[in-house]
């Protein structure tokens, strides 16, 4: 009954850009505040050619990847342990409950005091943000495993270690990926915030500097670059999930 109008998926964004471009060219809006899409594209190309945009992206990606990888590894390992072992849960749960509600960006000033103004404080802020999301989702994943599957594994002769590796870990994987996706989004938010302070490199730094100089086209360029990073990270995770969980219809 529900007809799909697939061409609209292309037509609609293209029309949006054309209207935007048209309105700006007709001089209906202040080009200083809203530049035309074509001129933003030109700025992006210029920034790419003179190397400023690629270097900014590399600097930010370096922080994001370090924070994300360490944060998710820690989150997965801790989450599996908290979800599976009561003692670990009782030890870790109050700490998590107490620290989780703190906005991770609010920890950044403290981390700068403790770990210096360099890369470490930025990476650790991102790490913490990712860690919590992955940890909480992993715990949920372990707890959501149907108890009858654990019974079945036991009935088939699996010992505790085998139940953990053959049932608990694969059973929690879908939720772990939910945590990773949320964590990737969080990492991008946090890298922007940490680059507002104490740095001379990074996409967040370039964006903020452009804003202070009122180079709106550059601001737009950086915003779009952030968006592209977000899309790429979610594609990568989707691809990884398909490879790791082939039984799931993603």
């Amino acid at each position: 009954m529900w007809r799909r109008y697939r061409p609209l998926r292309i037509i609609s964004p293209v029309a949006f850009l054309i209207i935007w471009e048209g309105v700006v060219r007709l001089d209906e809006v202040n080009q200083l505040i809203i530049p035309a899409p074509a001129s933003v594209l030109r700025t992006m190309i210029d920034l790419t050619i003179d190397g400023r945009l690629p270097w900014a992206i590399i600097a930010s990606l370096n922080r994001v990847l370090q924070g994300f990888i360490y944060g998710s590894l820690l989150g997965i390992v801790l989450g599996l342990l908290v979800g599976w072992f009561r003692a670990v849960e009782d030890a870790v749960d109050p700490l998590v409950a107490a620290t989780y509600p703190i906005p991770k960006s609010a920890l950044f000033p403290l981390f700068m005091l403790w770990f210096g103004l360099g890369e470490t404080s930025k990476v650790i802020t991102i790490l913490i943000g990712v860690l919590f999301l992955v940890l909480i989702n992993t715990v949920t994943g372990v707890k959501a495993i149907d108890p009858v599957l654990l019974k079945a594994a036991r009935d088939l002769g699996a010992n505790q270690r085998q139940i953990f590796t053959k049932v608990v870990i694969p059973g929690a994987l879908p939720n772990i990926f939910t945590g990773l996706r949320l964590g990737a989004g969080m990492a991008l938010i946090l890298v922007f915030i940490t680059e507002l302070e104490a740095t001379k490199a990074g996409l967040g730094f370039l964006l903020w500097e452009s804003y202070q100089l009122l180079l709106v086209k550059q601001v737009f360029s950086c915003t779009i670059a952030f968006g592209i990073l977000g899309i790429l990270s979610s594609w990568m995770l989707q691809w990884l999930e398909r490879a790791v969980c082939p039984w799931k219809r993603v």
Partner: peptide
Amino acid sequence: EFALFLWRTVLQNIVFGPEA
């Protein structure tokens, strides 16, 4: 409710016991 391991194929489900 069968309690099959969703992440294992038919063959992998059947070999679970011997594998353990």
